[in-house]
Write a protein that binds this DNA or RNA. Sequence first.
RNA 1: AGCGAGAUGGAGCAGUCUGGAGUGCUCGUCGGGCCCAUAACCCGGAGGUCGUGUGGUUCAAAUCCCACUCUCGCUACCA
Length: 485
Amino acid sequence: MKDKFYITTAIDYLNAEPHIGHAYQKIVADVLARWNKVLGKEVFFLTGSDEYGQKVAKTAQEKGVTPKQLVDKLSKKFKQEWKSLDVDFDRFIRTTDIDHKKKVKEFVRLMEKKSDIYKGEYSGKYCLGCEAYITEKDLVKGRCKFHPNKELKELKEKGYFFKLSKYQNKLLELYEENPNYILPKFRRKEIINRVKEGLKDLNITRSKFDWGIKFPIDEKYVLYVWYEALLNYITGIDWPNEKFKKFWPANVQLLGIDNGWFHCVIWPAMLMSVGIKPANTILINGFLTFNGQKISKSLGNAISPTDLVKKYGSDSIRYFVCRNFVFGQDGDFSERALVQRHNDELANKLGNLVSRVSGLIEKNSEEKCENKLLKKLNEKKIEKLFENYEFDKVLNEIFSFIDVCNEYVQNKKPWETSRKPEVSSSSFLEKERKNKKVLYELKESILKIAELLWPFIPESSEKIKKQFSAKKIKKGEILFKKIDI
RNA sequence: AGCGAGAUGGAGCAGUCUGGAGUGCUCGUCGGGCCCAUAACCCGGAGGUCGUGUGGUUCAAAUCCCACUCUCGCUACCA
């Protein structure tokens, strides 16, 4: 039986337009999904949108539409964005999907049976401006930082709680026994330290608005969005049925650090409560700035990924975000840097290699032989780097080999026998044969490069594969046109 | 305030876990080669006391320990 690989991304909250930060994560997930396909695994890739909650309701109200109208429009948009970047997911789950809602309710009942839900009271500082409870970090001089003119009210509210505190030690054991449960390592440390500071029970119901999934035990309430949204990772593969049994636990759950607490603490605790194993790895990506600025609605610099695709092409964007950033750390999506990498690496190195070799083969043809050139490629190293999510180094390794190939052309000078003399001497024939062998080595190497690059730049890789596996190899169109700065 | 990350030639980064000549990559810059190719490709050079301490450990520190400075991230019931 084939090995399976199940990968999920954070599902995006639909109160704003998609931007490159969202896209980065989806691209990385797609790269991992494709790489595992290359390895021969059966892959399931889940992404989607998080659609309930107060903020969506509020945004909809401001825009004069119903929450449903808002999320229908936005979820469609997010989905299209990912398609334009060749993100090839298997399901796009929406938390308003009927099967999700149904299964969430089943999950709540199961948790209740395990006696992990109780009725209690939540108290906190409520800001009338935000229409929400305010946390410590948003307090400035005892006032809400967004609404410093409004009073904060100490409010108490009845609700249903999940016994999160009960799982503190079990969670710490989980982290301890599985050093790769949270990656990168510095994020793991962060979470462990915070869990050690102590866990409070979690209020999983809301009563001040109704845009949510009804709490099945007491329908006066709707479920807290996070509680319900996290469950998408199992409802999306038809928990508790066949597909779930096949794909769970997820191999990789990818998310941004803003969601880290929920995914690394609350989510595994929820699963422990009902007796489901947590995922193998929670993988946390860094945040991107755009041309040196924070991406935010108020700055108005949230350029849509599709617009970037129109400007630079999907492959170049995918290549850039994987090559330019150390995975896990924050990075700057600088258009200047993107253009530079596109021109220097994709066009001048890869594109030019493909161009010169295909042209040479068209003129000189090739002859099969032992491939000494390809032996210089360290595939084991690449696999290892992939396992560690070091995408920048994977690409570095592949491009070093591209350099080796360009150097090989340079040193072997296979163009020297392109023009035949009137009378072919035996030394010429011998040389010609040597050159044909050189070209064969190069052809095979380029095919290998295309295979390795496919997870990153699927469109161009497929073009290269097609071009170089044809019976008569011809010099094709330019693969990456240079972009003027 | 707590926890965490970072400071490396002109720019941007690896390298630090596991100490071994400042090693490497991309860009820029200077010089040479090649003419198959997208004015692309290849080779060589210049340029850094690795944030500060004239701190500690060591035969040896960018790397380990200590102190300090600056920058950034996270700190759950809006998401």
